[in-house]
Design a protein around this nucleic acid. Structure first.
Lengths: 107, 107
DNA sequence: TTGATATGCAAGTAATTACTTGCATATAAT
DNA sequence: ATTATATGCAAGTAATTACTTGCATATCAA
């Protein structure tokens, strides 16, 4: 699976986006701390986090028996480069023209 | 379903992202033209496009029996505002510190 | 008006995804 | 040592998603 696929799939779920927000608000949380904010089992959260790790959006450090989670914003920058910046503005002129009834193929 | 949910779900599928790319390369294509680039049935493509429309990423205009598809980049800008800009850089300092063995909770 | 083209609608199947339950292991606290 | 805490692993279920097949409708061309 491509890097972009992993990324977009990771972002596709509201719970996973919430996890990113939680880490944004306070980086380095343990699994247990993250679980406290979501109403699902610890396992479910673990699986969401695994996906985020797979997309390289979250990095992990063990401290004793605790697993600390850190946000990695780099892949999001790549989304911007590939998917946002590229699509910036100019568009929709053609649509407007059509809607105004020009309806043609010719200039 | 929230607007953001629709958006991220729409972007989660590679075929749908390909459709956006196709429209970026050449806006205003018909359904048939789009189908020619994907190896799945017309119905499948229709369903993908419906999702993109639902996320407001694609707008449609009928010309006779043809359905023309246009890219709308505005929602992508919103993704940027909410999900990229916000997460810009500073991060990961805490992680680096930990990895270097400071391992502490205190400043 | 007949036939071909462009598309829609609806129900079904197959694959994937989100989430759970149950048990196991390792670190920490007493 | 014993118990409690923090987490992992694995298999199962339920829901969702991607895609198909079959038939219907509307526009265009001859």
């Amino acid at each position: 699976m491509s890097e972009a696929d992993l990324l977009f799939k990771a972002l596709a779920d509201p719970s996973r986006r919430k996890l990113l927000d939680l880490l944004y608000a306070h980086d380095g949380r343990t699994l247990g701390q993250l679980c406290a904010h979501l109403s699902m089992t610890r396992q479910a959260v673990t699986q969401h986090l695994a996906l985020l790790e797979g997309a390289n959006l979250v990095a992990v450090v063990w401290r004793g028996r605790e697993k600390l989670h850190f946000l990695n914003p780099v892949p999001l920058q790549q989304v911007y480069e590939r998917w946002i910046r590229k699509f910036e503005r100019p568009r929709l002129a053609a649509l407007d023209a059509l809607k105004k009834g020009l309806e043609g193929d010719e200039p």
